[in-house]
Amino acid sequence: MESPIAAVLQQDHARLDRLLESAAEAVRAGRWKEAAVLLERFRHGIVDGHMDVEEKILFPAFERWETDVEHSLTALLKKGHQDLRVFFQEMAETIGASDMEEFLDLLGTVQTILRQHDAKEEAELYPFLADALPDGGGHGRRPAG
């Protein structure tokens, strides 16, 4: 059975996907100011909320539980976060420049990264968090944003 912490995190992936798609819809419609606001809402939710919780709480707990050292899985996931932060900045700049073609190119790459990254987390990390977290994740922080 899926643990509550795994369910919360998976729902957050879906919420963030919807936020990114809403920003993309605004870009496709040429509503640049709205797109900037929506992309920033997405960036805040994923960087300051979801990734922050993962990097400060969940990855360290998994590493302590699994090997007590940096694990290749969490190393890879952290690297993915680093790459994504740069892509989000580049997407914001294309909106600032009203460059739809460049934004949509970046969007395709970012959505591919997110799809693969999220699938890896949901298959290889989240199922073990209930065991890895001291309270089983029942009282963990919810991602902000």
Binding site: G80, D83, V86, F87, E90, D105, L106, T109, T112, I113, Q116
Partner: peptide, 29 residues
């Protein structure tokens, strides 16, 4: 593969290219 066009200026750390396979996608900073 996507690569920025000649003439493009990039700050350090920005992606000059993006790569995609069936299992992975990422940037080349």
């Amino acid at each position: 593969v996507r690569i920025k066009k000649p003439g493009t200026h990039l700050e350090a750390g920005r992606h000059v290219a993006t790569l995609e396979s069936g299992k992975w996608a990422g940037g080349v900073p």
